[in-house]
Amino acid sequence: MKLARFRVGDGPVRLGRVDGDVTDAASLTVTDVSDVAGTSLRAILPDLGAGREAVARASGETYALSGVVLEAPVDDPQKYLGIGMNYAAHAEEARQAGIPVPTSQLWFNKQVSCIVGPRAGIVKPDVSDELDYEIELAVVIGKRCKHVAAADARSVIAGYMVANDVSVRDWLQKRSPTFTLGKSFDTHGPLGPWLTTDDEVHDPLDLGMRLTVNGEVRQDWRTDDMIDDVYEQIAYLTQVMTLEPGDVLATGTPSGIGAPTGRFLKVGDVVRAEIEGLGALENTIVPEPDQAG
């Protein structure tokens, strides 16, 4: 099942079921299921198993997906966490760019205020010219959990999204002793385009992922190249903290980021991040709004 948060025109946010072939955008529709599921995706995750049939049968108004505004599927997680340098080739390119390579899982926090939808503008901040992209598989937690073994970790996953872990490199590596500031600028957390539930993904550890800038391929990899796979990540994190329904884990980016070559994003660039079977984000880089007055 694919679940989206959407608006029709300037109307309120609704929860919808996306139907159709992901590889054929023109076939996609979204059916309003708000009457049976409410409007918060995070709120229904703990009961999604029991409520699945009602959502699947819901017959609210249906719209062509192209005619609605998609919002971030989960816009209010309690935690948005990301892992650094979790693909071997990316770790090597990071090392070549002068970024220390960790010897264990390196986790950082993205402030949830950075989250935006799959078509929203990404603001290029005035304080930096080192705006970078990172396509990532996002895992959404479905059950409150602690001390989860890697072998059991899939049972706590609600589903998957596409993430672009937008990074401001000079703030990330030079201007802050932690990653938080360089990862948390407003609009630097596009997520979506919808949540694909775990049962629809045969193997999250073997998905193709591709990111383009203005149509030029910059990242083209598969999730099977992770150093620590998504189950090992959950096992590692839950030794430390309780994960809650709706928490988002960005599971690492492959090689091809802009930092090693200095090919950073500029205003007007269109960044498309797509993962096999999960859909795509397409975000345009926009200037920072004038805050005067």
Rank of each mutant, 00 (worst) to 15 (best):
residue 17 R to N: 11
residue 283 N to K: 02
residue 53 E to R: 15
residue 282 E to D: 02
residue 279 G to T: 08
residue 9 G to P: 03
residue 133 Y to W: 15
residue 156 V to W: 06
residue 258 G to K: 05
residue 281 L to R: 01
residue 164 N to D: 13
residue 156 V to C: 01
residue 236 Y to A: 10
residue 214 N to C: 10
residue 166 V to A: 00
residue 204 P to S: 03
residue 103 T to K: 07
residue 126 D to F: 04
residue 250 A to G: 06
residue 161 M to Q: 13
residue 234 I to D: 11
residue 248 V to M: 05
residue 243 L to H: 02
residue 239 Q to Y: 04
residue 132 D to H: 03
residue 185 F to T: 01
residue 161 M to C: 14
residue 237 L to F: 10
residue 26 A to I: 10
residue 148 V to L: 07
residue 175 R to N: 07
residue 215 G to S: 08
residue 95 R to P: 05
residue 35 D to K: 12
residue 24 D to T: 14
residue 265 L to E: 14
residue 180 T to Y: 02
residue 82 G to F: 09
residue 56 A to G: 08
residue 270 V to L: 14
residue 226 M to Q: 15
residue 100 P to K: 04
residue 96 Q to H: 08
residue 7 R to A: 10
residue 51 G to Y: 00
residue 218 R to P: 13
residue 267 V to S: 06
residue 70 L to T: 05
residue 251 T to A: 09
residue 2 K to Y: 02
residue 165 D to T: 00
residue 5 R to Q: 08
residue 167 S to I: 04
residue 225 D to P: 00
residue 281 L to W: 07
residue 174 K to Q: 12
residue 125 P to F: 02
residue 224 D to T: 15
residue 75 D to L: 05
residue 241 M to C: 09
residue 288 E to T: 01
residue 155 S to L: 03
residue 152 D to Y: 12
residue 51 G to P: 01
residue 11 G to V: 06
residue 241 M to A: 11
residue 52 R to W: 14
residue 119 R to L: 13
residue 96 Q to T: 08
residue 60 G to M: 10
residue 213 V to C: 09
residue 73 P to E: 07
residue 106 L to Y: 10
residue 199 D to C: 00
residue 212 T to N: 02
residue 101 V to F: 07
residue 85 M to C: 10
residue 19 D to C: 05
residue 151 A to P: 07
residue 45 L to C: 12
residue 154 R to Y: 08
residue 251 T to I: 03
residue 7 R to T: 08
residue 158 A to W: 13
residue 262 G to V: 01
residue 240 V to M: 03
residue 246 G to P: 04
residue 130 E to A: 14
residue 12 P to Y: 08
residue 85 M to T: 10
residue 293 G to C: 06
residue 46 P to D: 12
residue 95 R to N: 11
residue 208 G to K: 13
residue 285 I to V: 15
residue 80 Y to S: 06
residue 276 E to Q: 15
residue 204 P to F: 00
residue 124 K to P: 00
residue 23 T to M: 12
residue 46 P to C: 07
residue 60 G to K: 06
residue 30 V to M: 11
residue 118 P to M: 06
residue 152 D to R: 13
residue 162 V to G: 09
residue 204 P to K: 02
residue 293 G to K: 04
residue 184 S to Y: 01
residue 84 G to F: 05
residue 154 R to V: 02
residue 252 G to F: 00
residue 210 R to I: 12
residue 233 Q to S: 09
residue 174 K to C: 05
residue 143 K to Q: 14
residue 112 V to W: 06
residue 36 V to A: 05
residue 208 G to Y: 11
